[in-house]
């Protein structure tokens, strides 16, 4: 009999805990909604905006020189957004770098590197921003690289 009573008491306690957990979950959910980041915002996440600062360094030459492209990632939305990482790349088309979106014939994207120093993963609040840097270099291929002379390769940074 005593054993049965103890079992009933345990069930009661566990049930209470379960009720509290559910209640807490509901509370957290509705708190988010109440602050303007609720369900209505979930489906309309605003893309991060990436803006570039003043470029420093250069010029890019085969095997020497680098350019530093600082960038800022901003959460333009009205709710917090999780910035996981950023990626940087030399834009290309058909293996050639692009310049203002058009391929620069003969100038291989493989000759360039875009080393990204991303910001740490962070939960960006509305209007908050963080920064990263891309260092661009050009390798010396050992072959004629004249098609790249004067070219302005497109560099792309994606924040997600």
């Amino acid at each position: 009999m005593v054993r049965r009573l103890k079992s009933k008491r345990a069930i009661t306690i566990l049930g209470s805990i379960l009720v509290l957990a559910i209640a807490t979950t509901a509370y957290a959910y509705f708190t988010a909604t109440g602050s303007g980041t609720g369900s209505a915002s979930v489906g309309t996440a605003s893309p991060f905006t990436v803006t570039f600062g003043a470029t420093t360094g250069g010029p890019l030459l085969p095997g020497s020189g680098h350019q530093t492209l600082p960038y800022t990632v901003t959460n333009p939305g009205s709710g917090s957004q999780q910035l996981t990482t950023t990626t940087a790349a030399v834009a290309s088309s058909g293996g050639f770098v692009t310049q203002s979106g058009a391929p620069a014939s003969g100038c291989l994207a493989a000759w360039f590197t875009a080393e990204n120093n991303p910001p740490a993963a962070v939960d960006l609040g509305p209007g908050d921003s963080t920064t990263g840097v891309v260092n661009v270099t050009m390798t010396d291929s050992g072959t004629n690289q004249d098609p790249c002379q004067g070219v302005a390769p497109d560099i792309t940074v994606t924040a997600s």
Binding site: V50, F52, Q82, V136, P153, I155, T158, A159, S160
Partner: peptide, 12 residues
């Protein structure tokens, strides 16, 4: 929540 954004610039 997360959202991706992309921008482009030029090296020289």
């Amino acid at each position: 929540f997360t959202a991706a954004g992309t921008a482009r610039t030029n090296a020289r």
